[in-house]
Design a protein around this nucleic acid. Sequence first.
DNA 1: ATGGTAGGTAGCCTA
Length: 270
Amino acid sequence: MRIATWNVNSVRARTARIVDWLERSDVDVLAMQEIKCKTEQFPYEAFEAAGYEVQAHGHNQWNGVAIASRLPMTDVVRDLPGQPGYANTGDPVVEARAMGATVEGVRLWSLYVPNGRELEHAHYGYKLDWLRVLADLTATWRGQPLALMGDFNIAPLDEDVWDIAAFDGATHVSPPERAAFQALLDAGLVDVVRDRAPGFTYWDYKAGRWNKGEGMRIDFVLGTPELADLVAKASIDRMERSGDAPSDHVPVIVDLDLDTELDDDRPMIF
DNA sequence: ATGGTAGGTAGCCTA
């Protein structure tokens, strides 16, 4: 089974490009982030015509996640249990940043971690709170094949940005953010892509970052040991950053060898 | 060069 994650930066702005990529890449399950539309606005028909069922979760023009699969999805869950909310003013609102589904006995989450904006911004504290909840949940999800897939908006290592000196005082590389990412690993997850596929996953539209090769590695697939045991291969499709109207992120792909025997008697934990 | 671009939306917000 081939699974992938991709911050598509508006599913409606590049529907054909995404569906074409899915078919061409022989992907079974795609976790999308930043669909930038309401659940009911998702372009379901184009995906269904290509043989993919879609479960989407979007409240408005911001954020939004979805999972497209050509294998049956079960136990679809929207939002993290206990997911913190955010609002610039007024009461916090739980944003559409997480959804889970089970495919072929593998629990998958599509996650869009808050950006953080600036170190002094309330959004930054929100980001850290969000990651704390995710780490606490991760501890309860252990013992099953599970992958957290998405845009984590954190560059864990200095080499994950084009020039660490350019990030002095910036989000995505600050020690608290990196500690929050490490907490996910400490909770039992493994980055199943890093040792198999080097390179960046995101290049800002601004300042010609793509043309200058100035990217960031902020999209990840983090798996439990049970998931990691199934991984045969991983890759980053960096050429998806080129061409006509690309997303600023590219797909991250993981191949799972499901011939490896799974313990079907083990109960799934949500 | 002290900055850019892109999407959703209809005035700006977000990244």
